[in-house]
Design a protein around this nucleic acid. Structure first.
Lengths: 199, 199
DNA sequence: GTCTATATGACGATAGAC
DNA sequence: GTCTATCGTCATATAGAC
C-alpha cells in the first residue's frame, strides 16, 4: 500500500480546482489553501504552476494512449472492427471515470501548456484520433460501418467520449455499467451499416 | 444595411480571442490591441470585461432557446418525435456554424459569469435540455426511441452538438450540408428503436 | 471617441529563517 | 518541509486632457 507523495497530492488537488475554475483562475494560493499550507511551500515539491498542469494532463494522456495501442497490438488483420471499437470505447469510459477530476484539463486547459509539452500532447491526441480513423476506414471497407463522411463518424464518437465527464457529475451519476453498456450501444448503433430494407 | 456599432465590434473581437485562449487569459489590452485602440478606450463602450462575456454568451443562448421553443410551438400532441428531433438538431447545427466564434465561451467560459447572469444562463441551458428530455420520453412511449437510460440518449446527442465547433475548425471544415445530413443521421440512428430481428 | 497617466490589487515566484 | 516577507510584473479600471 503506497501512499501519496506530496507532489502527487498537489497534482490531485490542483486537478480538482482546475476542473471547477479553469487553469488560469486557479492560483498557487488556492492550491496551497486546499492543502492547508502556504503558497511558497508548494515550491519545495514542484517547480511552478506549469509543471502541475503538465503532470495533470500527461498522466491521463498516457493512459489513453496505452489503451488504444493495446487494442491494436492484439488486433488481427481482418478482424471485426465493431468489436475493437466497442473495446476501445469501453476502455475510454473506464479511464474517464477513474480520472474524472483531471479530464477537464485535457479538454480545456491543454491550451495553457507551454512548448514542448504542448506539442507532445497534441501529437498524442492526434495519434489517438488516427487510430480511430484507421478502424473506421477498415470498417467501411468491410461493410460494417455505413458509408458517410468518415470524419462525421469519428466525431460522433469522440465528442461524446471526451465530454463524458461533464455528464457523469450531473444527474446523480449514472451507474457505471448502465453507462458503459447503453452508451456503447448508442455510439455503435449510430454508425453501423443497417440492412438496406431499413433505409 | 446596418453596420456594427463599436460595442458589437468589441463583443465579436473578444469572442474570437476567448476562443483561442480562454476568458481569463485574454486581457482588455489584448482586445483593445486587436481593434487598434488602447485598453482604456474600451470603457467608453462597455462597463467592463464581465459585460463583454455576458454579451458573448447570452446572445447565442437566446438563439438556442428560441430555436427549441419554436419547435414546441408547432408540435402536435402525438406527432412524430424523431422528426422534431431532426429539426432541432439541424437548427442547432445552423446556430453553431453561424456563431462558431462565440461557442467556446458557452461551453467553457460560462463559469466565469457572475450572478445573476450565471444563474440565468444555467437556467436557460437546463430548460433546453429539458425540452430534449420531454421529446425522448414521448419517443420511448411511442416506441420510436429504444428503451435505454434516457440520460444516455440525451447525452449522446447533446455532447456531439455542443462540441461541434471544435471539429468544424479542424480537418478543413466539412461542407455544411454534408455535416448537417450525415451528422443528423448518425445521431438519430443511434437512438431509434430497431426492429427486434436486428438485435 | 481616444488618448496618457495612474490607482489599486493580485499574481507567480524567490530568499532566507526556523 | 513550512513559514514570513517581499520582489517584479501585469491585471482591471478610473481620471481627466484633447
Amino acid at each position: 500500500m503506497k501512499s501519496f507523495t506530496r507532489k502527487e497530492e498537489i497534482i490531485k488537488v490542483a486537478a480538482a480546482l482546475f476542473r471547477e475554475k479553469g487553469y488560469n483562475a486557479v492560483t498557487m494560493r488556492d492550491i496551497a489553501a486546499a492543502m492547508d499550507i502556504k503558497a511558497a511551500s508548494l515550491y519545495n515539491h514542484i517547480n511552478g504552476k506549469q509543471e502541475i498542469l503538465e503532470n495533470v494532463i500527461m498522466q491521463v494522456a498516457n493512459e489513453f494512449t496505452e489503451a488504444v495501442e493495446s487494442v491494436f497490438i492484439k488486433r488481427k488483420e481482418d478482424g471485426c472492427v465493431i468489436d475493437d471499437l466497442r473495446t476501445i470505447i469501453r476502455k475510454h469510459i473506464d479511464i474517464t471515470l477513474k480520472y474524472s477530476h483531471a479530464l477537464p484539463s485535457l479538454t480545456q486547459d491543454w491550451m495553457h501548456l507551454k512548448e514542448p509539452v504542448k506539442a507532445k500532447f497534441l501529437m498524442m491526441r492526434e495519434n489517438y484520433e488516427n487510430r480511430f480513423r484507421e478502424l473506421i476506414r477498415i470498417g467501411m471497407w468491410q461493410g460494417e460501418i455505413k458509408r458517410i463522411h468518415p470524419e462525421v463518424v469519428l466525431f460522433s464518437i469522440l465528442s461524446t467520449l471526451q465530454t463524458l465527464y461533464l455528464w457523469q457529475e450531473k444527474r446523480g451519476r449514472l451507474e457505471e455499467n448502465v453507462l458503459k453498456n447503453d452508451m456503447t450501444d448508442v455510439l455503435i448503433q449510430g454508425i453501423i451499416q443497417l440492412p438496406p430494407y431499413l433505409e
